[in-house]
Write a protein that binds this DNA or RNA. Structure first.
Lengths: 181, 181
DNA sequence: TATTGTTATACTCTATAACTATA
DNA sequence: TATAGTTATAGAGTATAACAATA
């Protein structure tokens, strides 16, 4: 981490490196633009994520519950009992994360964990009364959004995303070798 | 695609929710589906993010540099001199994060920080020789992607996302107020 | 007082690995 | 040995707040 004051900066390039350029001739310029675009999309990707998260907050009426919390609650509210294993595969939430979510939910008294007696490795999940109420409230609030066509948007977005991910990953062999399953 | 959320959705449920009554009991199925969808899109959102990040790794030839690192490098490579302030507004990277990125870049000897002498609050950034080389290499690799139409995809995706964010946020008044009871 | 930049914390989800208990 | 679940760590970026130094 040397901090020498060299004089290697003093060329005459103007600071016209804004993210939106339409130059289609100079090579480096175009590539730089591509990077800018990637960065920007990356940002919008996150902002879309947070949009959905906000939707979840709106729906749950509290910002204490994330989308994933809601998902768990709702899933649980539709099955009288649910093994954690099922929940995991149904929601796609990775085990470690699921444990934490369940911790939080149980901490709030919304979910109860019971060890299965026929297979003591497994855990049976059930909503408590408050949990059930919360889930119901969630569903009800969701109902209001339903006719707001946001869900439509979300769905559409999902398709675009999937398309993007699959074509891009495919196209660029991003997974290192292209041999993975 | 990863495994779908549950067998309970995935059939083409049209948005035919009863648009008037809040029957929390009959329509719950549809609402639950909505939540599942949101969760999945949320997941795909992240997976798209990581796809772009992988693209950055691919382009930089190392997984040590994230997209944001690349962005900084490239931006710096196009301006002889760049104030941190400019970099911040050009890239949209929040100050705290930018400091960390610059730390890492400087640590690798790719970037040099020099306090401006006319306004000692500001910091002038410049690439070192290795930094410049890295940036150049980046741009070159990017060139190969450019004709792979992935950039196109990215752009398209960006538009969809922006559209989604603006319409959704707008529609639900997500920003700021989310309290309703 | 306002600005530039740094530091520190907390938060989201993801990804691993290592570990327990049970089968 | 394989499975279910837990714990711990690390990573990305975001969002704050509080703070320094300088203007």
């Amino acid at each position: 981490m040397s901090k020498h004051l060299s004089d290697e900066w003093g060329k005459g390039t103007p600071n016209s490196t804004s993210p939106e350029h339409e130059t289609a001739g100079t090579t480096t310029q175009t590539e730089a633009d591509a990077l800018y675009k990637m960065a920007e999309v990356s940002r919008v990707l996150r902002s879309a994520t947070s949009t959905i998260e906000k939707l979840a907050h709106l729906v749950s009426g509290t910002s204490d519950l994330t989308l994933m919390h809601c998902l768990v609650l709702v899933h649980l509210s539709k099955a009288a009992t649910c093994k954690q294993l099922e929940l995991k595969s149904a929601t796609g939430i990775p085990p470690a994360h699921l444990t934490k979510l369940l911790d939080e939910l149980a901490h709030r008294g919304l979910v109860r964990r019971i060890r299965s007696s026929w297979d003591r490795r497994q855990i049976i999940l059930a909503l408590t009364e408050p949990g059930r109420e919360t889930a119901l409230r969630l569903l009800t609030s969701l109902h209001k959004l339903a006719d707001k066509t946001q869900l439509d948007e979300i769905e559409r977005l999902g398709s675009s995303l999937e398309h993007f991910v699959s074509t891009t990953e495919n196209d660029a062999r991003l997974d290192g070798k292209g041999e993975e399953d």
